[in-house]
Design a protein around this nucleic acid. Sequence first.
DNA 1: CGTCTCATGTAAGGAGTTACATGATTTA
DNA 2: TAAATCATGTAACTCCTTACATGAGACG
Lengths: 193, 193
Amino acid sequence: MSLRYALLALLNVEPMTGYDLYKQFESSVGYVWHAPDSQIYPELRRMERDGLLQGEEVPWGTKGRKRQYHVTDAGREAFRTWVNTQLDYPRERDPIHLKAAYLEWAEPEAARQQLQAHIEHYGARLLQWQQKIEEIDGGTSDMLNRRLATVPDVDHQRVAAFKRFTYEGLTARAEQEIAWARRGLALVDSLYP
Amino acid sequence: MSLRYALLALLNVEPMTGYDLYKQFESSVGYVWHAPDSQIYPELRRMERDGLLQGEEVPWGTKGRKRQYHVTDAGREAFRTWVNTQLDYPRERDPIHLKAAYLEWAEPEAARQQLQAHIEHYGARLLQWQQKIEEIDGGTSDMLNRRLATVPDVDHQRVAAFKRFTYEGLTARAEQEIAWARRGLALVDSLYP
DNA sequence: CGTCTCATGTAAGGAGTTACATGATTTA
DNA sequence: TAAATCATGTAACTCCTTACATGAGACG
């Protein structure tokens, strides 16, 4: 259900086509929420059916057409309700930690490789998220700048602050995961001298 | 696909029925991986069909019957392969952080409540996970003790160490989430004086 | 003229949730 | 004997993944 609100969030800034949204999910917003095109296009149609979006056919080139969606009042209201509503926390279900509990079954070398991969995975994410923070601080974030253009100056600080807060949480998580995996590597070394 | 290996992990310790496994997922193991009965029973049948488990009808009371599953050689081999194989990391998809990025749309009070709920959610998890660590350290973990009974003494330390390592990662994550939400509360206070 | 990007889909299947359904056994 | 626990399912639905499919426009 979050996909719906991720789409509303992006379309609140400006009208876009499914493809525009798909690209956003591949890059910027995709570092917080990812969705493939095969999920985006049907969801946009459902959202229009439910009255949250209004689509408009616009010409593209001489023969081409594309469908641009903008958020309706009902859509803005639904989004506002979502941000104000407590969401349910899913039950725990983490493949990495599940496997970590049974690493005594693994070859030491395989255990090391997987912990190393964990470090690399979160290392790459960390760089991306840190870069987002730098963009926010430097005022070079395209998406944020477009969003800021639609709100009064007095609210700019607030809008930017929550974006920064989000990426701070993600970088802290990444750092924690890296630290944990490093402790895991040390543990493997100590158990298999 | 992880459900399959969570089930194998539990059945590696001793044969169990679907209901036994369901209870484990409701309590102990459930703090790392949860699954409802409606997912467990069909998966057990699929695993038997695939030769990873062997089920056996055992009488229960006078008229009742239950099906007890034990892991086959193929099942143990599949589990060993799983722990040795690098798993794919899913793309980022986190409803909490997605929403955090748009908290400027929320009422300050609603924002506070949701951050508070985040603290309470991870606070409760933290206690559960810390308790698991204490059980491991104190030798009072039922599941771990049964598992240790099946391996040579020299491996005991190793088996326990990885269980502890898992819960250390989860507690560190919980503490990080709590710290993040606390910063969020301070941020809301500073933005809406 | 070929390749990359833009643009929009369908189809099959896996994983998980929620709700519904049934009956035996044990225990207070 | 009523309630809790043990035991095992089905059915409908949502969400997501992977793969397949097609065609126009832009650029070099």
